[in-house]
Amino acid sequence: MNINTMRATILIILLAFMVTPVAASVYYTSSAPQIITKGDTFTISGTSAKNGMVTIWIIGRNYFDTFTATPDRFGNFSATLKPTTTEKFSSGQYAVLLQDPGASGTMEIEPGTDSSGNLTIMNRGKIIERIGARQDLKGNVQPVVAKLMDAAKIQNVDDTFLPEYFFVEEPSVQFDNLISVSTIHLPDQITGERIAITGTTNMGPENSLRAQVYNRNTNALITSNTLPVVAGNHINRWTYELNDPGLPQGEYYITVGWTKSNQAGTGLAKFTVKDPTHTTQTPLPFSGIEKEIPRDDVSTLLFLTISGVLILILIVFAVGKK
């Protein structure tokens, strides 16, 4: 191979490497794949960003935002949204788009606004798509994502977009072992014994929960504890424990909720604490003199009665004959 051919080959390889789009992945703390809870920390990270700074677009219901991330010398980058940001999310589908500038190292496609303040998509400062008002963005983000993907196909635009999707849920708490979902009643507890109540939540392990036990008759607060959220295989869990002697006999209810809010993400369940000496006994079968006679015994009694009568008749007949 001559030197000119070698140089051309190296140049082609370098160009091919430079225009390779960002190979990114989205990571976040949640209880289920592709689901985050309002108030959870949300981390976006990626690799192989060799063309310079990347732009991250987040689009969802009533939400539209972009920000940049600078990769390290290996092309790795990361950006974290704090709970104060994800608290503003609405329930529904969201899209994260990672925009790579391509070989030019410059973003041709950018977000913008028109004279009315409505959201737009721009190509080198010129409006090419009108998205509309931020408050009019719906839960279905696919149409907006499609507009960005189409913008990347415009002639002389070498930006590339990699979309990822996730769903946002309101914080929620569930109880294990409910006897009745409609009456939200837990199994009875025994006074003098340790109390353990468990459940699940869609909130991430960086959150804490507040458990409060109230008397159902007076609504008086009996006890309050802070509970950690423990990461699970498929869903995160929590446990409330009250060591012996537990609680006095009575009717109670427990609330378990997000420490950051008194309204969102709170579950409630009822339970009864009983005295172990006042347990209900299963009635024993009646054993009086009135008792049903088995059918076999009736047949035997009838046979013996008839036999006795026949013997008596024979005796009378024999005596009369003498």
Rank of each mutant, 00 (worst) to 15 (best):
L247R: 03
K126F: 13
S31C: 09
D72H: 11
Y165E: 03
G199Y: 12
N225F: 15
V168H: 01
I179S: 13
T300A: 07
E193C: 04
A79I: 01
L314V: 14
L242W: 05
N140L: 10
T84Q: 15
G199M: 07
F317M: 15
V26G: 02
G267P: 02
A133E: 13
T255L: 12
N225K: 15
L137K: 01
L137H: 04
E129L: 04
E290K: 11
T226K: 02
T80K: 13
K138D: 10
M18F: 11
G257C: 09
L137N: 05
S116Q: 09
S78P: 02
F317S: 15
R134T: 15
Q212R: 14
R210H: 10
I179A: 10
E206A: 10
N207H: 13
R210P: 02
G192P: 06
G132C: 07
E206Q: 12
S299E: 15
I179P: 02
I179K: 13
A8Y: 13
D158E: 09
M6V: 12
F167M: 12
V229A: 03
S224R: 15
V26L: 11
V96W: 00
G39T: 03
W57A: 09
D114K: 09
L148D: 05
G232A: 05
I127V: 14
V96M: 03
K88G: 05
V316Q: 08
H185I: 10
V22N: 02
L148M: 14
A231V: 08
V181Y: 12
F161C: 06
G265I: 03
V22W: 06
N202K: 01
G320M: 10
N217A: 10
Q99P: 09
Y252T: 08
F89E: 05
F17H: 13
P143T: 01
G320D: 07
S182Y: 11
V319M: 01
Y165F: 15
G105F: 11
A264Q: 14
Q155T: 12
A151W: 01
I235P: 00
T106S: 08
P83Q: 09
D158M: 02
P21F: 05
D72Y: 09
Y63G: 05
A269M: 04
T277G: 10
G75N: 02
Q249R: 13
I315G: 00
L310S: 12
L98D: 05
S31T: 14
T277L: 14
P245E: 08
R237Y: 12
V96Y: 01
M203R: 02
P228H: 03
G204N: 15
I154N: 07
I315S: 00
I36E: 10
E206Y: 05
W57Y: 14
R295E: 13
V256W: 02
Y63H: 08
T239N: 08
S261V: 03
V309N: 01
R237E: 13
L186W: 14
L148A: 07
T266C: 06
V141Y: 04
G117K: 04
Y252K: 05
G92Y: 04
R61C: 03
I35R: 05
E87H: 11
I44A: 09
K147Q: 12
R130M: 08
N156R: 12
G192F: 15
I12F: 06
I293H: 06
K153V: 12
A220C: 04
T200D: 11
V256H: 00
I109C: 03
N118I: 03
D100S: 06
I293L: 07
P171T: 07
V141N: 06
L178D: 03
D275W: 00
K138C: 07
M203Y: 00
L137M: 07
Y28H: 10
